[in-house]
């Protein structure tokens, strides 16, 4: 009886000593982005959802691939509810994989939204309502994805496009484009932010847009759309004549 007791004591001692080591290893691997950080969803939900993901162990990636393929099948059959829930499961299983968030948002904000908008079986008010709700769903997916991977330029870019083309919120689109510019160091995104600010109704934002576009102009990046937008802003902001750019407005389709 002595040996089993000793064995139990060793097991308990090992268990107690390993806790700080496990904690340190987990923190290190999370800092290295090798382990997915836990989302603070509250105990019950965490044990339910993250516990489920944890129980799959190292097979999470495989299961995520399977749920992704099922989501693609649901998309082919135009079952938007199933597409959403399967992508939700997929992104929950692999929250650090950009492609899943990006595609989930694209399905909702572009495909599902357009599907409802063009569905002539529904009355016009309902079509618009359903279409807009799916745009918002796409936005929420991207925002959730950015909570998991805040420095992902691709997700910021998709969010910018969503605000620009689907939700029509130029100021927010501009902020997202600025973030992409900051993350990639590419001046083109600051110019895209400038275009969006130029569309805003607020004078202060238009001024910000003007500054961004002039930055691009001074860097010798001068596509016709840039010249025209600067010209529009010069008028709207009453820029003094001596500060205006010398180029004339470019006609649509003209080759410079």
């Amino acid at each position: 009886m002595k040996r089993p007791l000793q064995a139990l004591l060793v097991l308990l001692l090992l268990g107690t000593l390993k806790l700080p080591l496990e904690q340190a290893a987990t923190a290190h691997l999370r800092a290295e982005k090798l382990l997915t950080p836990r989302v603070d969803l509250g105990l019950r939900e965490n044990l339910g959802q993250m516990g489920f993901a944890a129980s799959l162990g190292g097979l999470r990636s495989l299961v995520a691939s399977i749920t992704y393929l099922r989501a693609c099948g649901a998309w082919e059959n135009v079952r938007w509810g199933a597409v959403d829930s399967l992508f939700q499961l997929t992104t929950r299983l692999q929250p650090r994989y950009t492609h899943y968030w990006d595609e989930a948002a694209w399905h909702m904000a572009w495909n599902a939204s357009s599907h409802y908008l063009n569905n002539e079986k529904l009355n016009p008010a309902l079509r618009e309502k359903l279409s807009y709700e799916h745009v918002l769903r796409g936005r929420d997916i991207l925002l959730e994805g950015l909570r998991m991977i805040p420095d992902d330029a691709r997700l910021w870019h998709t969010l910018a496009e969503l605000y620009e083309r689907r939700d029509i919120q130029p100021a927010k689109a501009a902020e997202c484009y600025l973030k992409v510019g900051e993350l990639t160091g590419n001046l083109r995104f600051r110019r895209l932010a400038g275009y969006q600010y130029a569309k805003a109704a607020d004078r202060a934002l238009q001024l910000k847009g003007y500054e961004l576009l002039m930055e691009s102009y001074r860097a010798n990046q001068r596509p016709p759309s840039l010249i025209n937008t600067i010209k529009d802003l010069e008028l709207a902001l009453s820029i003094p004549a001596m500060l205006r750019i010398p180029e004339a407005r470019v006609a649509p389709g003209a080759v410079r």
């Binding site: 308990l12 268990g15 390993k18 290893a25 987990t26 382990l35 944890a54 190292g58």
Partner: peptide, 14 residues
């Protein structure tokens, strides 16, 4: 205390 943390080895996903 009694079980090992096998999640530490689940780096494959990433």
């Amino acid at each position: 205390v009694l079980t090992p943390d096998l999640g530490v080895f689940d780096v494959i996903d990433n």
